[in-house]
Structures are given as structure tokens and as C-alpha cells.
Amino acid sequence: MDEKVKVYSTPSCPFCSRAKQFLKDNNIEFENIDVSADKAAGQEMIDKSGQMGVPVLDIEGEIIVGFDKEKISKALGL
């Protein structure tokens, strides 16, 4: 699988770690973007998702807000 997956997250958010662990468990490569360290990336996340809650997953352009296992699995074809 060669999907491009981005995870917008903060280091302290429990659902961000759950989401990242879920991707790891399914051998999905992803880019972790720490929005607490990178303000521009934070704005990019807000622009893409229209909201400020983390995590936000960008799976080949499909935006998923929160650790929604079912939506994530569907978008990845798991």
C-alpha cells in the first residue's frame, strides 16, 4: 500500500496516540505533524478540516476528524 497519510496531532492528546498506534498496528506509513510545534501546520489543519480539534487524518485527501476507527479503516481499505 502506498497511500499518503498525514496525522495532525499534539503530543499530549490521547486520541492522537491511539490513532497513530492503530496505523502502526496495521503497517500504514504516515507522516506525523505536530501542530503544537508548527503553527503553519496547525493553520493548514484548520483550513483542511474547518475545525481545531485533534487528531485530524488526511488520507489521500480524505479528511477524518478524531480517532474514528471505522472511517479510517474504510478510507485505507482495511
Binding site: T10, S12, C13, I46, G50, Q51, M52, G53, V54
Partner: peptide
């Protein structure tokens, strides 16, 4: 909700730098 209003400072706090 999630557009500036949140119930989790630990999660979303860093976005308000």
C-alpha cells in the same frame, strides 16, 4: 465545538499558541 471551543485542554491547548 472544536471550532475554538473544547472540553480537552490537554488535547487541543497547543493550538492556541
Amino acid at each position: 465545538k472544536n471550532k475554538g471551543l473544547t472540553y480537552c485542554a490537554t488535547c487541543d491547548g497547543p493550538l492556541f499558541k
